[in-house]
Amino acid sequence: MFQKWWLNNKLKRLISNNKLNKSTHLQRHYQYLFTQLNKPVSDINFLALDIEMTGLDHKKDEMVSIGIIPIIKGQIQPGYAQYKLLKIQGSVGQSATIHGVHDRDLTTALDTSEVIEWLLQQCQDKVLVAHHALLDIQFIEHALLKLGIPVHQLFAVDTLQLEKQRIYRKKQFIKNGELRLNACRERYYLPIYSAHNALTDALACAELLLAQLNKMGGLEHIKLQDILRKY
C-alpha cells in the first residue's frame, strides 16, 4: 500500500515537473507508468534492455551497445528486437574481449544523443526491465544529464532484485555468483546462452522475467506496483 502511494506520488510530481518537458517521450513514459501501476503485469508492455559498456563506472566509462526486446501482454517479441552501437570517445580497449564489439565495428555507430532519443521513444509506452538495472540506469541518466535533461528518477523492474528477494525468502544468504544472469536462468531450467551480447542478454533477461513472474504466482496476479522500483 505504501509502495503504491509512494510510486503514485513520485510519478505525479515528475509529470508536473517543467524541467522535464524538454522530452515529450519521457513525459509519456511517466504517464504510462502512472496509469499502469495498478494493472496486472499480464496487461503491461515491457522493454527488456541490456547495455554493454567499456567498464562499470558511469562517470568515466562509455556505453558501447544497447539491445532491446519488447514483451507485449506476456509474449516476448523477437521480431521487434533492436540493437544499436554507440560512438565512443576513446577505444573499447580491453572490454572488447567481453562484449565482442571491436573498434572496427563502430563505423555504423550512432551518437549517444541519437541513441538516447531512440531509447526514450521506444519506452514511452513500456516499462523498462533489466538484470541489475541500477548499472544500466546510471549510464542512461548520465547520458541524459549530458543532453541537459537532469533526470535522477528512472523506474525499472530488476530481475536481479526479484531473484534476490526470492532467495532471501527461502534462505538466509546468497552465494557468490548466484545472482548472475545465467545462474538465475539455470534455476528456472532456461537454456544457457553465451553471455555479453546486448541483444542476447536482453532476450535472456526477458525470458527470466517471465519465468520469475510465473513462479511468483502468475502474471495475472501481480501488479506493476509490486515489482517496479525507482532508481
Binding site: 506476456g74 509474449q75 516476448i76 523477437p78 521480431g79 519465468a211 510465473n214 513462479k215 502468475g218
Partner: peptide
C-alpha cells in the same frame, strides 16, 4: 525467427 513470439508456461 522474426515472426515468433516467446511465451513462458508454468
Amino acid at each position: 525467427c522474426s515472426t515468433l513470439t516467446i511465451v513462458y508456461y508454468s
